[in-house]
Design a protein around this nucleic acid. Sequence first.
DNA 1: ACCTGAACACCGTTCAAGT
DNA 2: ACCTGAACACCGTTCAAGT
Lengths: 212, 212
Amino acid sequence: MALVSGRRPARKRRNQYHHGDLRRALVQEAVQTIDRDGVAGLTLRQVGERLGVSRTALYRHFADKSALLAAVGLEGFRAFRAAMMAVGSDGFEAMGRAYVAFARTHPAHYRVMFGGFLEGCRSEPELETEAKASFQLLVDALAGLQARGLLRDDDAEQMARFVWAIVHGIAMLAIDGQLGAHDPMIDVEYAIGRLATGLARPTPIARSATPL
Amino acid sequence: MALVSGRRPARKRRNQYHHGDLRRALVQEAVQTIDRDGVAGLTLRQVGERLGVSRTALYRHFADKSALLAAVGLEGFRAFRAAMMAVGSDGFEAMGRAYVAFARTHPAHYRVMFGGFLEGCRSEPELETEAKASFQLLVDALAGLQARGLLRDDDAEQMARFVWAIVHGIAMLAIDGQLGAHDPMIDVEYAIGRLATGLARPTPIARSATPL
DNA sequence: ACCTGAACACCGTTCAAGT
DNA sequence: ACCTGAACACCGTTCAAGT
């Protein structure tokens, strides 16, 4: 559950009425609520009540509800990038698996990050920065594979958008329940297999094939 | 704008206070509101007010807000399926283009259909039926290509989920503004090119290639 | 600094009452 | 049948007041 970067020790500050770190508690409670009730089910009053705090205490830490959502998104992006970096960038197989796994493990974060709920948060530059950095991770990984001659020489950003669309599509369908009982990891494995064929550097012979 | 199947002529019914077809007007107004303000910005009171009708008039036609949303989704699925059938099922190129084009032309419908807002509508069997039928369209198209020897012999449903994830991913990223000014149709064309390589029936020679 | 309760303008939904 | 206004329990947000 420790999603934030753990630089600050668990030492509680004094001179506070109810919490050592209300800000963090608010974000955490928001995430739990979204996991349970969806973004639409998130109410600031309930969050406060659940934390044993007045319903306006939140405004000491966040300008409004969308700022709280932005904090959830930012935390999500940081955890997401950490998870991606943890698997390394040798092949996109592991990244693809890690991507969908993250969405399933943190559906609330994922939905806030990529579900269009951050529209009113254009004022948060950190969000944009973090999102761009996550995407760049994928671009770099693909460029690395290209440099080793393993991938076609297409524009790396174009390839990245393609791969991103696939894992994003699988992830969204999975956490929205569109896949029913079907295991999304099967789709990830299938996609990896098809991408190996479709994105591999074309050999002279394969290039001459007229597939469709 | 005529999204519903046009079987009923525009003849207005009598003996009504304000509308010939309040139900349809409500759905239409809801769609416009969602297009403008997002699903979160949809309020029943505003819809009624905009239609010059009491704020509770809606309950004569819909059990609650989620039922109105379900109606929007159903209308979307019907229009979606019609658009898919219109392009034929000869190749998935045209279907892919039509898919993303639909999402961009009807972002409100698309978001309601696939954005996880229909969770509370399990009681609407028509929704499930329509969603399944849309998916089946893709499965059938792929199976047809398989029968003509143009596609790999993988499970057609597995291939369909793969293709669906791709176009869904592109569509969501596009209507969520994640692509910035980038034209999503470029991604569709790129995806089509890569899929032609990745989903084509493997020739004996291509099969022996070790791409990644 | 951080927290509080009262207050305001909203919202979905119910219901008795009207035509 | 279809529509209405009053009412209820919610919601986000503001603000003067407390420690």
